[in-house]
Computed example of a mutant assay.
Amino acid sequence: MIKLTNVSKHFHTRTGIVRALTNVSLEVQKGEIFGVIGYSGAGKSTLIRCVNLLETPTSGTVEINGTDVTRLPKHELLAIRRKIGMIFQGFHLLKTATVYDNIAIPLRLMDVSQQEIDKRVGKYLRIVGLEDKHDAYPSQLSGGQKQRVAIARALAQEPELLLSDEATSALDPETTESILELLLTINQELGITILLITHEMNVIQKICDRVAVMEKGEVIEQGRTVDIFANARHSTTKRFVNGTYHRELPPSLLRELRENGPVVRLSFVGESTGKPVLAAVSRQFDVSPNILAGGIIQLKQEKIGSLVVHLQGEGEETKKAIAFLEQQGVYVEEMERGHV
């Protein structure tokens, strides 16, 4: 559906060149929800704006359904943009227009017939749950309702691809949850591919099939969401993942425990979740597992179990125990700092 190959974007400023993106490559498959996460300044917004060419890449290619859109003349690019919907953090609603008109005006500019406009506005207001807000003005709506209108406006163009630029970051947790559920419904029932950017790992956790992690304009890690949560490699990715568990060990306690064996985080996915592996460790090796913390997180389609365990024992025995755990399909990460 979307393929970015070695995309770079540089901005020339008074103080020099700002390298917003550097050789970014990723693919978004048709029908999936793909998330891009990173801290402020990572290049996420520039990346998503390069997909529909609101920003033109300095170098690299952007393909949509096999067509390199960076090489298209304006009239052909316009036709492709009409199949790409976009929703923003700030809603971008016209304050003096009703909900109906906020959705209808872009369709009028596309020369859609009035009969078809009425049909689409009604259909997509039903989908976002705002049938009764047809004649309301934005000032009469809550933040979540405004975002639902913005989503209905994007859907009314009947796009194949929906781009979400921090669409939930201005919303409270309960409203965020409802918007994420709506995006899931749109993806599953309408078959629309979604590419979203966010700085919130809970957004990735709840609805994304795959994820790319960005830092300083580069993609530092990407893969299936379940693999990233279970076995993050890069330190930045680990910070995002660890933040979903909200657990810390005091550094002094960690240092004390490690004098008698490693402290490890065990992640259980799939078949490994049903195995009594810690009981087996204590039977087969001269190691005493001590569970320090644990929890389960629900991803879009799978659950991941996580335990923080002190493997008390001598070096060779604990190494054998860790190797055994890995053979059983458990992801093992030795903890070196207090954040687990």
Rank of each mutant, 00 (worst) to 15 (best):
D165R: 12
E32Q: 15
E271T: 06
L125V: 08
N202D: 14
S59R: 14
T61M: 02
N187T: 10
K206I: 03
T236R: 14
F229G: 00
S142C: 04
L161T: 09
R258K: 14
G60D: 09
S40M: 05
E336Q: 12
I33H: 01
I192K: 09
T13Y: 06
G313L: 05
N290R: 14
L78G: 00
G329S: 10
V203Q: 06
P276W: 15
S139F: 13
S164T: 05
L125G: 06
D68C: 07
Q205A: 10
T193E: 10
T58L: 07
V309H: 10
Y245V: 07
A154K: 10
T236W: 06
G191A: 09
R148E: 05
T15D: 11
P159R: 12
L257P: 00
V308W: 09
L180N: 11
S40N: 14
T176I: 07
F268W: 03
H12Y: 13
V219F: 04
E27S: 14
S164D: 15
L54H: 10
A20C: 07
I297G: 03
H75F: 09
L26N: 04
L107E: 06
V330L: 04
L171M: 06
I127L: 14
T237K: 02
V241N: 08
A136L: 02
Y331V: 02
I291T: 11
V7I: 13
T198D: 07
R265V: 06
K83V: 01
R126W: 01
M201N: 05
S267K: 08
K123A: 11
G35C: 02
I2C: 07
A156L: 07
G274I: 02
K30R: 15
G261T: 07
I322A: 08
S178F: 01
L196M: 15
L325P: 00
K319V: 10
K319Y: 08
L325I: 04
L195E: 05
K44G: 04
T22R: 15
Q298A: 12
L53S: 05
T22P: 00
L93V: 03
G270L: 02
P57L: 05
T185D: 13
G43N: 07
F240K: 03
T318H: 08
L161N: 08
R283M: 06
E76M: 10
Q205S: 10
N52L: 05
E63G: 01
D132F: 02
T176K: 13
E256W: 09
Q188F: 04
E259R: 15
V263D: 12
